[in-house]
């Protein structure tokens, strides 16, 4: 088993609760997007899983074992936490050689991961000359070094160029398809929507959602259908006959709320309404996320106001 199990995990810094009674499981074979605003506790949770920070209470395990009991952890778990973790005066290749040596990872993996992450050409350059995107690639190379079955990346697309973002998306999907467990934190919704198929959402250290991405969106965003026609009157009449209500927009198209594109397509073609455009307007992750956090903010803001 290669799941990441977080159970009743709590971490307090002084009086502030960075992580608050968090329970969730990250399963293999999926890319799990780890979402939440800045300061929601995503990075803290990752550090707790890696045994870098001590939990105030609760447990975090990888494959049923505490990370600190793993003998050569890089062979099981690869993590990217900070892009600036490599010492600036070392070359990229030496940085990876050191990590490989500590976990008895064969030296050829160093060249392989540099090739894979596209930094082979700068292998012998010092890290301080690297751009943020290149440091990020080096950090990802370090995470992949031990060919781990569990991968945990904190904001991996940070600083990457458009090609890099496409590359990381494909890399994440491929790793999940290979049956690895992939947890990727982000605060960019469109980015996460492009690679994740499962979501764990945090807010103020608490778990807000742990669901497949499709369910997450469908539960929060009502499906709409977008229609453009040359005969608005006929369209309205046809829809009204079937109990649908169409709303006109400024740039000449109509939207039908709570409707599925299959139904609307049949209705308008049956009624002979000339259709210029017919599309399903699916909810985006961003809409669903904002809907969720808006409810959360409202909930969280109330006690503050009551105090005044």
């Amino acid at each position: 088993m290669t799941t990441i199990d977080v159970h009743n995990l709590t971490k307090e810094y002084g009086t502030r609760r960075a992580v608050d009674d968090l329970t969730f499981t990250v399963r293999p074979g999926h890319v799990t997007g780890f979402l939440g605003p800045n300061g929601a506790g995503k990075s803290t949770t990752m550090r707790l899983v890696l045994g870098l920070d001590r939990a105030t209470s609760g447990t975090a395990t990888v494959g049923g074992r505490a990370y600190t009991t793993l003998h050569e952890p890089l062979r099981h778990v690869g993590a990217l936490l900070d892009a600036d973790a490599a010492h600036g005066s070392r070359t990229a290749r030496n940085h990876l050689r050191v990590l490989a040596a500590s976990n008895r990872v064969p030296a050829r993996r160093v060249d392989e991961v540099m090739e894979e992450t596209g930094i082979a050409s700068v292998a012998r350059s010092r890290v301080k000359a690297f751009s943020l995107g290149m440091r990020q690639r080096l950090g990802i190379a370090a995470a992949l070094l031990g060919d781990p079955e569990v991968v945990m990346l904190d904001e991996p697309s940070n600083g990457l160029d458009p090609e890099g973002i496409i590359w990381i998306r494909e890399l994440l999907r491929r790793m999940a398809a290979e049956g690895r467990t992939v947890l990727v934190s982000s605060h960019l919704m469109n980015e996460t929507a492009s690679f994740a198929d499962h979501l764990v959402v945090l807010g103020r250290g608490r778990l807000l959602a742990d669901t497949p991405m499709r369910d997450f969106i469908d539960a929060r965003v009502r499906p709409r259908v977008r229609v453009r026609t040359s005969d608005a009157t006929a369209l309205k009449a046809a829809l009204a006959r079937h109990g649908h209500d169409a709303v006109e927009h400024d740039d000449g198209y109509w939207t039908v709320q709570h409707a599925r594109v299959d139904d609307i397509g049949r209705i308008v073609s049956g009624a002979g309404v000339p259709v210029l455009e017919l599309a399903s307007d699916e909810g985006t992750l961003e809409q669903a996320y904002l809907d969720l956090t808006a409810a959360e903010t409202e909930f969280a803001a109330q006690p503050k106001e009551a105090r005044r």
Binding site: L50, L52, P73, A79, L81, D84, S102
Partner: peptide, 12 residues
Amino acid sequence: GNGIRLTLAAVP
């Protein structure tokens, strides 16, 4: 630059 995190992740 938080290199210690990477080090202790490799040797916990």
